[in-house]
Each structure stands twice: as C-alpha cells, then as structure tokens.
Design a protein around this nucleic acid. Structure first.
Lengths: 237, 237
DNA sequence: AAGTGGTCTAGACCACTTA
DNA sequence: AAGTGGTCTAGACCACTTG
C-alpha cells in the first residue's frame, strides 16, 4: 500500500472522503493547486488521480469553476466488468451455487470458433441462488489446456468461478462481451428455477477474454426475469 | 480541426492508421520516443493520446515490450453509450420508426421520482422497425420544460430521438442507466410486433441524464427477442 | 545492456467562469 | 482581475522484458 504510486494513494484517499461524506455529493472538492499542497505532489500527479476518478464516475468537472462529486446514484453502478457473485452481493443478497455438472466435453463447431480452441473443454453447469431462491442456470465452457494446474473439481471450492480462475489458476478476465436476449423457459429450466414453463428468462451469453485477448470462457446464463434485473451505466464519449 | 489539441490530432492520426491497416491488428505501433519524433511533441502528449486510445479499446500495452493494436473484434464493439438508431445501423439494418403517439401526460409518482420533475411530461411512443420488420416498441417520457423551444411534433422529423434532442434542442445525453429484463408479450404488444402473445420480449428501461446529471428521459423498450440481441463489451478496472 | 513503458517534477501559457 | 481547469514541455529515475 505504501509503495503504491502516489496517484493511486491519492485516488484511494479522495474515494474514501467521498464514501465517508467528507466530500458530499454535488459539492466541489479542493482545487488542483490546493490538492498539490495537501498531498505535496506536482499538478500532473493530482490531475492523474482526478482523471481516473472522473473515468470511474466519481467526479465531474465544471469548466472554469471546479471539480464536483458526482451524485451517488451515478457512482453506485460502475460500468466495470463485474461477476455475478459480485452483482448479487452488491444487491445485498447472499449468493450461492449448486453444482449441476463438471465434465470434459468435445467442443461444438460454434464453441471451437468462439473459444479459438480445437481441443477438449471443461463444462461447468451450476444453479445459482441468492438467499436460497434459485436465480439462474449458468453453464460455462473453458479450454482444458488452461486448467491443467488443478483438478476441475477445484471449482467446487468457491462460489465465484472468476475467483477460482484468478486465485487458483492465475487467470484474469480483462474483457467480456455480453449479449442480452430473452426466451421462454423450457420444462427442465422451469423445474430447476422453480417457475412455470413459458415464463420469461433473461438470457446472457458471455465470452470472456484475458489480458492477451485470448478467449478463456464462454458462458450462457438463464436468469429468472421476475427475480433479477441487470443494470448497466454507460457514458457518452 | 487544426486548432484541436495536439493529443486529439495524434489520436485521430493513430486511429486512422489502425483503421486503414497501416498499424495492423496485434502488431506493435512505434515506441513512445519514436512517436515523439514523428509528431514533434513531448512524451507527456504522446502518452496522453495513447492513454485515451487504450481507454477506447484500440490499443493495449505489453509491459517492457511495447504498445500493440487490439484485435479488431474487440474494437468494433465500443462500450460507449449508443442510440438504438446507431445500434441498428451498425448491424447493417435500415432503421425507421412509426409514430404511435405524441402526447402531453401527467407524471405518475414513479415517473416524477425518476425524472425529478413534478410537471407535465411529453410521451413519445414509437414502433421501431429495421428493414421494415417491427423490432421494438419504444415509449419515452421527457420533462416538458426541456422542450419549449419547438412543438413536440418536431420528433416526427427525424428517426433518432437523440438526434432531435441534440440538434434541435441542444440537449446532449451524457450518461444512461439501462436495466435489462425479460417478459412475455401481451396481446397488444404481440399485435404491434407481429408475434404471438406470450412470445419472449427483451425489456430495457433506460434513464438518460445530461452533462449536469439532470434526468432528461425515461424510456421503456420492448424488443422482439427473436430479431434482436444486444451486445455490450466491458473492461475490468 | 539496451529498450520499453510507469511515474513524477517544476515549470509555462491558455480559455473559461465569476465577480 | 483572480481563480479554475486544459494543454504542453523538457527533463528525471524507475521496473520490466529481451538479447
């Protein structure tokens, strides 16, 4: 923490002051030259920190006037990539998962193309719950060459698949492409999710990429529309 | 253009070289010191330009090695805010809209709260089509005090509501909050969209804000799930 | 060892807002 | 006129990757 770059430390400090209300919503934070004095750094470093906080949606600049704290409504939903475990935790729910299957499977032509990998895949199917209510059926496919370090059963040890990838396999998801659609539940989906056949499901297909732009996961998620809504905040360029 | 800041001109130039293939996908662009010589600017200015291109998804940095052009797959789906007109054009379709209603309405309590406006609203309901196939029913509510400059019928003159707001009212959308859900079509929705009652619809509720964080539009959109998929690319922080 | 990007400084001049 | 952020320069030292 103490060895982190100065601008990171400044970001953390300002973020903390926003969160604790020392810099309330819609008020101006100290000017850049004041921040230079506070943190004893150059203006470039102050501006670097402010620039990232603007990018993250915490601050906004009014030309010729000053730098203002964004209304918290717009702070709380960052446009960052987020895992479903995190999403549910953010909504104050206790996420869990029941493993339906962990198997080695052959890739279909579509999956081969999407994952750019001709070999075997690991299929992980899970029923996700929040506060013990079934929320979604989540089926992931991962190239097996990425997962040689441990037995696939390691995915039983944690609720978040992305946490297993990061902590046990050192694989970090950098980019996702999410496609939203809607379908009617079929009989088996309805049974698993405790709803009726024909009820609406939000369907999300996600392809995840690592830092080197290699596809590392394709997943298809069926979410109960009555229990779950997915919100995303976007900013114009 | 010539009076634009240097870093903007550099961004445009590099973007152009990526688009025309002079800097092909997955190859390294010149190093920062080479770019200093090319553009005759300081390293700070070069880095400013590169930083924004990384943010926009065009470039990626490999530590200690160089700066690489992102694969075009990941460039083509920017995470920017985008209008539905643009979205359909991007998919190679010809978007159009049939006006269903332009009316002054009283705000429901929910709408009053969402739009933070107690007065009358302008309701604009439209059937959106792509290549003459009905795609979505789009109902927007806007505070009437924003629209005094012209008669509301001006919304008939353009296909894109956001274009009318920007060009005729000088109102720019800066941030949107989109919530995704799914429902089954009711009888009237099914009729308008040429589908059957009970067929799945993707529902998107959007609240749009201007640069000053004032809510300027609430819209609810019902999309035919069989004809339309909505893709978003997200990056980790 | 050489080259790359990562961080940081100390200045400068400008356009914009407010009084 | 004074204060704000917007842009830019010319240096410096560092950590990381590769030959």
């Amino acid at each position: 923490m103490l060895n982190d770059p100065l601008y990171i430390q400044i970001i953390r400090d300002i973020q903390g002051k926003i969160d604790t209300g020392q810099y309330p919503s819609d008020t101006f934070i100290p000017s850049e030259s004041e921040l230079q004095d506070i943190y004893m750094v150059s203006r470039t470093t102050v501006r670097r920190a402010i620039s990232e906080l603007i990018n993250a949606g915490y601050l906004t600049i009014v030309k010729g006037v000053g730098t203002k704290v964004m209304p918290s409504r717009l702070i709380t939903t960052p446009k960052e990539l987020i895992s479903f475990t995190q999403l549910m935790r953010n909504q104050g729910m206790r996420p869990d998962a029941r493993m339906l299957a962990i198997e080695r499977v052959k890739a279909t032509p579509d999956l081969q193309k999407t994952l750019e990998y001709p070999g075997e895949l690991i299929e992980i199917a899970r029923l996700r719950t929040a506060d013990d209510t079934p929320i979604s059926i989540n089926t992931s496919y991962l190239p097996s060459d990425l997962l040689v370090k441990h037995d696939p059963t390691i995915f039983r040890t944690r609720v978040s698949l992305y946490e297993v990838l990061e902590k046990d396999f050192n694989i970090k998801v950098a980019v996702t492409e999410d496609t939203y659609s809607a379908i009617n539940a079929n009989a088996s989906q309805a049974k698993l999710l405790s709803i009726r056949k024909g009820d609406p499901l939000l369907m999300i297909e996600r392809t995840a990429f690592n830092q080197k732009n290699r596809p590392i996961e394709y997943s298809i998620i069926f979410l109960r529309a009555d229990r779950y809504r997915h919100t995303i905040t976007l900013r114009a360029n």
